[in-house]
Design a protein around this nucleic acid. Structure first.
Lengths: 190, 190
DNA sequence: ACTTTTGTTAACAAAATTGTTAAACATTAA
DNA sequence: TTAATGTTTAACAATTTTGTTAACAAAAGT
């Protein structure tokens, strides 16, 4: 078992799944069952570890989405798969997004990304074409995409709040989230 | 000018508008142009200040929504007003929600709230009745409400990300957000 | 076998942040 | 004007967290 990878995995779990944004190096070390100094040995500083695992988590997300968006298949199939894959990814690390927002924007982390060719832009084009075909209602394709991601992500990100507000058990809420996959598809295409 | 109130207002701005969740007492004091000790004088501890301003911010949000939800007017008007008011509120403190999620859930802050009568539940009832009337499509009213809030909140919360992804200026994105008010209304009612 | 490299640890030092105290200052009321 | 109360500040102490160092162990190369 590789301790370097294990520390990264644990850090991702703590930061992006458990949502403990400001876990100390000690807490990460404890969770990973390694000596705290190992974190400095492998990653030099907490900030560095932080940046590495964040970038990795974003990259896997992006590559998952790229796979779907650049796949050759009918739009409706692609949309269905996208919902499946993105939902899965966000369930894995639900706190990654809010993390991104609250932490990273203020520190101009985002500015480092220089990728011009976002697959999202390609997907917007897909949507546009489909609208021209008349298969789905003609609106602004950017809004279509934003609607799509909002409907998928927000209920997952806000799960603890909504479970409270609507008095739902973990299981019930999980069911509700499953229902949403077809629900979102229908809402956007019908 | 009352310094106690001024510190609270500044803290809200830093935490919930600028999104600097972990601003130190020194940073808050600097922003408010007061001596750091004043924060301890008025609020005893950083955590306490934190809790006070968070509760205040939630309360004003809740009372805004209550006003709309418990108002006597046709459903469609109420929905339109709700979109207007909630959008406004979330624009004011866009980071409050993600804050709530990332910080508070892990510290069982939420458990303190004992309010049983959430106006949200009342609104779900409104939606249900309207569905029975046949004015809007019959679906699960809980999903309707979750859709509504997702469509309003997420694009605002994620503004920095989407602006980057779609290459939009602050002004353009502001326009896009304005468009969404009618767009969301239509998407959910048509 | 022994030398070098890599991994691991505890102890220490440094930095950052918070909370406290006591004194100065201002305001008001007796 | 003085006493009392409330406000503000700087200096200090305590705590928390991080990063470094040097010693030790294990593994790999020769």
């Amino acid at each position: 078992m590789n301790k370097e990878e294990h520390i990264k995995a644990t850090a991702k779990e703590i930061f992006f799944f458990k949502g403990e944004l400001h876990a100390t190096t000690q807490e990460i070390a404890d969770a990973a069952e390694v000596n705290r100094s190992l974190i400095n040995y492998y990653f030099r500083s907490r900030d560095n570890l932080f940046e590495i695992v964040y970038n990795e988590a974003v990259e896997t997300m992006v590559s998952q989405l790229d796979n779907v968006i650049y796949s050759e298949q009918p739009f409706m199939d692609k949309l269905e798969l996208l919902i499946e894959v993105y939902t899965q990814e966000i369930l894995k690390y639900p706190y990654k997004e809010s993390f991104l927002i609250t932490e990273i924007c203020s520190k101009n982390f985002l500015l480092k990304e220089k990728k011009k060719s976002h697959s999202l832009i390609a997907f917007v084009e897909d949507v546009k074409k489909e609208m021209e075909k008349g298969t789905i209602k003609k609106t602004d394709p950017v809004h279509f995409v934003i609607n799509l991601f909002s409907l998928m992500a927000y209920p997952i990100v806000m799960a603890p709040l909504y479970r409270k507000l609507f008095n739902l058990s973990k299981e019930k809420y999980q069911d509700l989230l499953s229902e949403r996959k077809t629900l979102i598809f229908k809402l956007l295409t019908e």
